[in-house]
Nucleic acid binder design. Structure first.
Lengths: 223, 223
DNA sequence: CAGTGACTTGGGCGGTTGTCCAAGTCAAGT
DNA sequence: ACTTGACTTGGACAACCGCCCAAGTCACTG
């Protein structure tokens, strides 16, 4: 094999682990399988990572980092909240539904983390990332539509993450993408009822609305 | 060991498998560990089950069947829909939050099922059971409060299952039961806005309400 | 051009897994 | 009392796992 500095080799191995685990499941991501996927011999993995667990943690970190939301910068301003939300949700679902293996791997990583002390931090990092991402998206959407939200953004992001998680799981099980997307659009409709227009002279818009502030739902995608 | 007919022995082994897997995770439920938990020798397991997979399927079937909702028969009639929903949700959450290991095992079973062809039917059976249970609960609640729902019950049950799943996962990760319960009560508040009183002379009640029928959320617990 | 050290190799180690089986034990029927 | 067959036992097997290491290879520096 081509010689390569450790740092670069590590990235390659993480990539290989991600490929194997997304395709065949986290249990299939053995040291041997990762080495074979990367086209290197067995010893290389333990030369670059102290443990198999360290490799798995690096892989989890990579897949979590990759879940950053994309394409939010091109959301047009001045649209009604409901429409902005629909755009955001459609984009989110497109990115989720096109990466089934990664989605499934994310849930496998979460449950594995909750069982094995060596992966202790993985799950909480995953969800901290998702809650923060949801909060950020809600902030961007709110600014694009000129509204604020009737609920604290931590609660709202929890709602978004929970609902997206729930529908993603359901979709993984039954394979019905349309049903899931319709459900998520419903979440968008619910969120729209929580939008409060900014009194400021700015050209806001969207669903005005009372808050009878009931609340919870929410989640940001684990893609 | 005491002699025992196969059928009875099978039940005992399923119980042992459930104990091991709930406590230590699905990976820890090896044939040896299950035999030890049941206090029988190794060969007994393969005498009662053809495969390890057959044992796992039987275990999954048992845990899914056990998720039937309880205590619904003692819901008082004539209460406002919002209060009935809160009662139901509090009971549901009490049963979820008191069985952390089983909840986690349910998610492990789902992901395992989605990866291994031998467990193919497990996940879909789990969710069919949960969607049906949610539908049943919504029906009971509706009758107790004298209302019907503004959305088709299949969609509503999907919402319930998705939201409960999402919040359960979040709770498994961060351990914050209060936050999850508050979130689920919010789901109850949302559902209340979808309740339509029955015109019939019956003493219904609860939040009346327009349906702007957006929709989805929902889930029934995997306990 | 020689030497040094980072990187790679492939096999071996002990442990665990699912599966199998020859032999043993015990309750029930004749 | 003896036979039969359901049930149990404990060890063996091959396959796989994570981990380790002595030896080899190559790029680079002096």
């Amino acid at each position: 094999m081509n010689r390569m500095p450790v740092a670069e080799r590590r990235e390659q191995l993480v990539e290989a682990a991600l490929a194997v685990a997304s395709r065949d499941g986290i249990e299939a991501a053995t040291v041997r399988a990762v080495a074979a996927e990367a086209g290197v011999s067995l010893g290389v993995v333990h030369y670059c990572f102290q443990d198999k667990d360290e490799l798995l943690r690096a892989m989890a970190h990579a897949i979590t980092e990759r879940n950053t939301v994309q394409g939010l910068d091109q959301i047009p301003r001045g649209l009604p909240v409901a429409e902005v939300l629909e755009l955001a949700i459609d984009a989110l679902w497109a990115s989720i539904s096109s990466t089934r293996g990664s989605q499934l791997l994310s849930y496998e990583l979460t449950t594995s983390s909750l069982r094995h002390p060596e992966l202790n931090q993985v799950a909480i990092e995953q969800y901290r990332g998702q809650w923060a991402a949801a909060e950020y998206v809600l902030d961007v959407v709110g600014k694009a539509a000129g509204v604020t939200w009737a609920l604290p953004s931590e609660e709202l992001s929890r709602i978004v993450v929970a609902v997206v998680d729930g529908y993603s799981l359901g979709w993984l099980v039954d394979g019905n993408a349309d049903l899931a997307l319709r459900g998520l659009r419903g979440l968008g409709g619910y969120l729209a009822t929580l939008a409060v227009p900014i009194e400021n002279g700015a050209p806001g818009s969207g669903a005005p609305m009372d808050d009878d502030a009931v609340a919870p739902q929410s989640d940001e995608s684990p893609a």
